[in-house]
Structure formats: structure tokens, C-alpha cells
């Protein structure tokens, strides 16, 4: 039986996926991550549709959501999640290169739980994501129906 992944990472940039997994791996959280590469796939995972129709039920403990992604962008995914009674309690953290205030404000207005700007420098990126992973997969208590990371 496949276990439910406790972190959903929606990110189209391959390098950022690698760095994020590396950072989460420092706290043994990398095995808990399901990676999807665009917004449509993120929604398929959450709604258990398409290739995810047989995944175990339940929501991830946190969704790490890039904004600029193909097919369906991160803000649209966020809007879908926070507008769906079965998904809206699930914590969503935007993890983006965008320093545009309009993205920041729009994300908070849509109900994002947290907003992290990807640091440009490698070590700073890994440190930030590592701290993010520790807080959301270990310290935060997710809503019922979530799977937690095993630290």
C-alpha cells in the first residue's frame, strides 16, 4: 500500500524541485513529498483524479505552491483550494520567486497560510526551505484528515 504523502510540492522548475527536496532531506522529510509539475496536476492530486485516482484518501499536511506554473498557475490553484469546503482547511504555503507586491497581496487575500520568497542564493534557499519544512511538517498541527511528516 502506498502511503499518503504529507507534503505536496507543486513546482515546474526542475532545479528548484531538486533544491527543495535537498532542503527537506536535511530533516528526513524528503520521503514524504509528492512532486507535481503544474497546477492542473496539483489539483488532480488533491481531488484524486486522473493518474492519482487510486492514491490513499486524505489531504497533505501542507502544499508548497509555486505561482508561475504551466496550465493552471499557483494563484488559481490557491483559489480552488480555498474555495473548496473539503480542501480549504489544508495549509498552503506559496513558495515563489515573485517579489511583486500584487502576488503577495493577492495570495493573502485568497487565504494563503504563508508566503515565502525563494532566496536567490543556494545556501539561503536551502536554509529557508528547511525552516519551512520543519515548521509545517513537524511543529504545525494540521487539520484532521491530514498525514504528518515523520521527523
Amino acid at each position: 500500500m502506498e502511503r499518503l504523502k504529507s507534503i505536496l510540492l507543486a513546482e515546474d522548475n526542475h532545479m528548484d524541485v531538486e533544491l527543495t527536496l535537498e532542503a527537506l532531506g536535511r530533516h528526513n522529510l524528503a520521503n514524504e513529498v509528492e512532486v507535481v509539475n503544474d497546477g492542473a496536476e496539483a489539483l488532480e492530486y488533491l481531488y484524486r483524479r486522473g493518474k492519482f485516482s487510486s492514491r490513499p484518501a486524505g489531504n497533505p499536511a501542507v502544499v508548497l505552491l509555486d505561482i508561475k506554473m504551466p496550465k493552471v498557475n499557483g494563484l488559481e490553484v490557491l483559489k480552488e483550494i480555498k474555495g473548496d469546503p473539503n480542501l480549504k482547511m489544508m495549509p498552503v504555503v506559496v513558495l515563489t520567486s515573485s517579489r511583486e507586491e500584487s502576488d503577495l497581496i493577492r495570495s493573502y487575500n485568497l487565504g494563503v497560510n504563508a508566503y515565502v520568497v525563494k532566496p536567490l542564493e543556494f545556501e539561503e534557499f536551502v536554509t529557508a526551505v528547511s525552516r519551512l519544512g520543519v515548521f509545517w511538517a513537524i511543529i504545525n498541527e494540521p487539520p484532521p484528515g491530514s498525514s504528518r511528516g515523520i521527523a
Binding site: E101, A114, I139
Partner: peptide, 24 residues
């Protein structure tokens, strides 16, 4: 330990909304 990690995330890593937010 828990509060310290909470603080690191919310005071350093998270980007808060602008201090004054207009209704939107």
C-alpha cells in the same frame, strides 16, 4: 524549541502582507 522554530519561520522566512492592507 517549538516556539523558537515557529519564530524562525514566521519572523524570518515568511513574507508578511504589507503592514497596511486595503480592503480587497
Amino acid at each position: 524549541e517549538a516556539v523558537s522554530k515557529l519564530d524562525v519561520f514566521w519572523a524570518i522566512v515568511n513574507e508578511p502582507p504589507p503592514a497596511r492592507v486595503n480592503a480587497g
